[in-house]
Design a protein around this nucleic acid. Structure first.
Length: 283
DNA sequence: AAGCACACCTGCTAGC
DNA sequence: TGCTAGCAGGTGTGCT
């Protein structure tokens, strides 16, 4: 079976850095919002036009899997790629692909396009920054795992006394932001921790391994510009594939030998999703 | 209150 | 060969 890649932190960060280099500094001439479901919260096409047209995109940020397009002052548009969303940089006159839901038309005629067949993605205007300066709508998100301020102690404290199993907790975005099904499996393998371990039962040493593995896997995946699997669904701003796939240790490798211990990698169906792990060396 | 089930959606694939 | 059921999964909501 072909298994898909959906954008998680490394893929979103790759798009963020592409946007920062390519689109930041340009003025948005026109905004078109064509998607019925894509605009979320209080946003609608008229409000998007009123707030963004004629404005300069000053910077592009990221929080978890959310992209933040900053337009100066407190004005920001938040983009989530959902499961099939792509932000694509397109030359003037290039035909728009199917499922193009939002288009930012910049000063020289190039277009930033939000293309999203499954419409799980989202675009909305932020109502304003929260206490941390990020859009208030993202205040529920947990730690930013590559932020140097994220410590082992903070992770230990947020896992303590939690009865949830490790994998669902990491997928929940409230302890750590930005992990999805693929990188959670890769991180738990790297940390030698079973996905069904009770989160509150980790030793100090195991919390340290989880913290280090999270940083290591995400940093490596960003360096390879993210993962694209067989469906070639994930693309960067220029439509190119990510290069991290050959480095996957467990994800979508059911039946293969564990690269660490030679055990058999298994797939378990869980809460409506797949979990890949090595039962022999993940304790 | 935390943890879980479920809805949302399209493209692709296995299986008849 | 043509059709369809099933799977893939991030997030928000609502129930227990």
């Amino acid at each position: 079976r072909r298994r898909g890649t959906v954008p998680e932190l490394p893929e979103v960060e790759t798009v963020r850095s592409d946007l920062e280099r390519e689109v930041a500094g340009r003025i948005v001439r026109r905004v078109e919002a064509l998607g019925v479901r894509t605009l979320r919260r209080e946003s609608n096409p008229a409000r998007l036009r009123a707030r963004l047209q004629g404005r300069r995109l000053t910077a592009v940020g990221r929080r978890g899997k959310y992209l933040i397009l900053r337009f100066g002052g407190d004005d920001a548009a938040v983009v989530h790629l959902g499961m099939s969303g792509q932000l694509l940089w397109a030359a003037p006159g290039t035909p728009r692909p199917r499922h193009t839901h939002v288009v930012w038309d910049v000063d020289d005629g190039w277009e930033l396009r939000f293309v999203d067949p499954r419409t799980f993605g989202a675009v909305f205007l932020s109502a304003g920054p929260g206490p941390d300066g990020e859009p208030a709508e993202l205040a529920h998100l947990g730690a930013e795992p590559l932020d140097p301020r994220w410590t082992i102690e903070e992770l230990r404290a947020s896992l303590a006394r939690r009865r949830s199993r490790l994998k669902p907790l990491l997928l929940g975005q409230r302890v750590v932001a930005g992990l999805g099904n693929l990188y959670t499996d890769e991180i738990l393998w790297e940390a030698r921790l079973g996905p069904e371990r009770a989160a509150g039962g980790l030793t100090g040493r195991e919390v340290g391994r989880l913290h280090a593995a999270t940083r290591e896997i995400l940093t490596s995946a960003i360096a390879h510009r993210g993962s694209s699997l067989a469906d070639e669904q994930y693309r960067d701003l220029y439509g190119r594939l990510g290069g991290y796939r050959p480095l996957h240790r467990v994800y979508a490798r059911e039946g293969a030998a564990c690269p660490r211990c030679g055990g058999r990698i298994t797939r378990a169906a869980w809460l409506g999703r797949s979990t890949f792990s090595c039962a022999r060396c993940q304790g």
